[in-house]
Simulated assay, not measured.
Amino acid sequence: MIMDSRISSATYFNQGLAGMTTAQNAIAKAMQEISSGQKEIRASSDPSTTASLVELDRSVSRLQQYQRNADAADARLGQAENTLQGMSETLSRARELAIQFNNGVHDDVSRQAMRDEFGQLRDQMLSLANTRDERGDYLFSGSQVGTAPYASAVSAFAGDTRGLNISVAEGRSVRAGWTAEGLQGALQTLDDMASDTSLTTVDAARFDSLVQAQDLAITLRAQVGNSMNAVELARADNEGELYGYTATLSALRDTDYASAITELNKQTLVLQATQSTLARVQGLSLFNEL
C-alpha cells in the first residue's frame, strides 16, 4: 500500500512538473508577444499562416518598390516638364528674334547684338537638351541615359529613339525618357545665326527648324503630362493594395493585447495552482515515508 502511494505521488509530481513547464512556456510566450507587439508564429506549428506571411511580405515589398519607382518617375517627369517649357520659351524668343532680324534695316551694332542673343539662345537650348535628372541621367537621350544628347550645338544627336520606361505598378509602365533628336536643326540654326556674319536674313528652312523644334517641345510636354497622370493613378492603386496587404499582415502578425493579457493571467494562475499542488504532493510523500 505504501509502495502504491509512493508510485501515485511520483506520478502526480512528474505530471505537475510537466504542467509547470507548460505554464511557464505559455507565460514566456505571452510576455514576449506583449513586449514585441507581434505574435509568435512558427512554421513547424502553423505552416499555413507562415506561408501566408511570406507571400504577403513579398507583395508588400513589390508594391513598395513600385511606389519608389513612381516617386523617381514623378521627379523625372516634373523636371522634364519644366525643361520642355524652358525649351518652348527659348524657341519662341528665337522665332521673334528671327523675324526681327529679317525686318528693317540694321546697322552692324544692332546685328551683332542680335547675333549675340542668338548665341545665348543656342547655349540655353544646348543646356536644356542636355538636362540631367537628380541621379545624373540625361532626360532626352532616349534609353542612352548615360550619354549626353549633344556634345555641342553642331554635333550629331548621340542618343537613341527608344525612350525610357519605368514600371510603376503591376503590368504598368510610364514613359520617363525621350529623344531630343528633333532639336538638331534648331541648334544648328541658332549656331549659324550666332557665328556666320555673312548671313543677313534667317531663311525659310532655318525658320522652319525653329518652328518644328518648338512643336516638338510642345508635343513632348503633352506626353509628359500624360505620364504624370498615369503615375498618379498607379500610385493611388498601389496605395490601395498596400493598405489591404498591411491590414491582413497586421491581423495575422500583430499581438492581440487583450487575448495575450488574458492568456498571461490564466497561465499565471495555472502555474500558481500547479506549484501549490506539487508542494502538497511533496508533503504527502514525506509523510508516507515516515
Rank of each mutant, 00 (worst) to 15 (best):
A94E: 10
G142P: 04
F157D: 01
N288A: 14
S198V: 01
Q214G: 15
S61I: 01
I27H: 05
V60A: 02
N165L: 14
E134I: 09
T147C: 06
L290S: 04
A94C: 14
N69I: 00
V154A: 15
A73I: 10
S143K: 02
D160Q: 15
Q85H: 12
T49V: 05
R76K: 13
A26P: 06
N238H: 12
I2S: 13
G240V: 12
G163K: 04
M228T: 11
E33H: 07
V109Y: 06
S152R: 15
Q275A: 09
A10D: 01
R122A: 08
T22D: 13
A156K: 03
S88G: 15
R175T: 04
T200D: 04
T179P: 02
A23P: 03
A176K: 05
L220C: 07
S250V: 12
Y12G: 05
G182P: 04
A72E: 00
A234T: 07
S92N: 12
S173P: 12
S61E: 05
A23Q: 08
S92G: 14
L17P: 03
T189W: 02
L249M: 11
D192R: 09
D107S: 00
D137Q: 14
A80E: 13
T179M: 01
T255H: 11
L210K: 13
A94G: 13
F140D: 03
A230C: 10
S141A: 15
Q272H: 06
V174T: 11
W178N: 01
V202W: 09
T262F: 07
R235F: 00
A26N: 10
N102R: 00
V168L: 14
A75F: 11
N130C: 02
Y257C: 10
